[in-house]
């Protein structure tokens, strides 16, 4: 190997190590019961990074409490968002990609313009409207705003546009009809885009903080990030538990993204570069 290549590998490994270190430290520390992870920090010992002799005590305490309920809520809200959000986006994207109707261009521009308004900017006025509409503190209130996801529509539309016209025409000749073509021809071909858009919808809910803070107000409706942030403000709670909760909330999207890295990256570059 050339010297420059060795230097590049070294730099890449160093950057990756530095960026990943805090997360690894969170995992290692979460396996030290209570606040005992601090003991390995002054002075700094290798035990801070290698959880030899650790235990899952923090996880047990955490999952015995209200956090378990909040975690379940997070899975429920994100799961329903993926299913309903995909349904809404698939139908809209199919109409925009395949059907030929007057005003199609205008609808598409509307979708693009609206999705450029960042949700958090209008979350506070929307939360006021939701209390007027009696949607505060309900699952519907948590889920509804995430269903109007313009990026998901865009990603699916771009993918549907790539389905060969001959295939659509052949389906027509076979008498499949518009819905039959969508279900039997277009959707089975679109798995990468469905996975990418589904992940976008999942992450938009799993990572949300402001909206669930405004809407899921009673303890029974709290989502996990809110519950964890509230726990961290109680002085009676060990930091070890906070780290355990942080690791759980990070591990779920991490695993999903590792599995579906390719589809997710492709969707991102469709929505970002050409959007």
């Amino acid at each position: 190997m050339k010297v420059s290549r060795v230097a590049s590998v070294f730099a890449a490994a160093l950057a990756a190590g530095l960026i990943f270190l805090p997360l690894w430290w969170v995992f290692a520390s979460s396996l030290r019961p209570g606040n005992s992870f601090v003991e390995n920090l002054t002075p700094l010992s290798w035990r801070a990074f290698l959880p030899v002799g650790g235990s899952f005590a923090n996880y047990e305490v955490l999952l015995d409490g209200d956090f378990a309920r909040a975690l379940l809520n997070s899975f429920l809200v994100a799961g329903v968002t993926v299913v309903l959000g995909l349904a809404v986006a698939v139908l809209a994207a199919y109409a925009l990609a395949v059907l030929n109707f007057p005003g199609r261009g205008y609808v598409f521009v509307f979708v693009i313009l609206v999705s450029m308004v960042p949700f958090d900017a209008i979350a506070i006025p929307l939360s006021g409207l939701f209390s007027t509409w009696r949607l505060s503190d309900s699952y519907a209130g948590l889920i509804l705003p995430a269903l109007a996801n313009g990026f998901a529509i865009f990603v699916l539309r771009q993918f549907f546009l790539g389905v060969p016209q001959e295939l659509l025409d052949a389906a027509e000749v076979d008498g499949l009809g518009r819905f039959g073509t969508l279900l039997r021809i277009v959707l089975p071909l679109s798995k990468p885009a469905l996975i990418g858009a589904g992940l976008m919808l999942f992450l938009s809910q799993w990572q949300a903080y402001l909206w669930p803070l405004l809407i899921g107000t009673s303890p029974g409706k709290q989502l996990a990030p809110i519950a964890l942030a509230n726990l961290s403000n109680l002085y009676s709670v060990d930091l070890g538990q906070i780290l355990a909760g942080s690791f759980v909330l990070s591990a779920v999207p991490m695993v999903l993204l590792l599995f579906f890295q390719r589809q997710y990256t492709e969707s991102l570059s469709t929505s970002g570069m050409r959007g």
Binding site: A15, I19, F20, L23, Q207, S232, S246, L249, M254, L257
Partner: peptide, 21 residues
């Protein structure tokens, strides 16, 4: 992948992790 991983962490959790660190 190691460099991308922090993007998977929810923003509120990032705050909790770093405040502990």
């Amino acid at each position: 992948s190691l460099i991308f991983v922090p993007a998977a962490v929810p923003g509120s959790v990032t705050a909790l992790i770093w405040s502990t660190a």
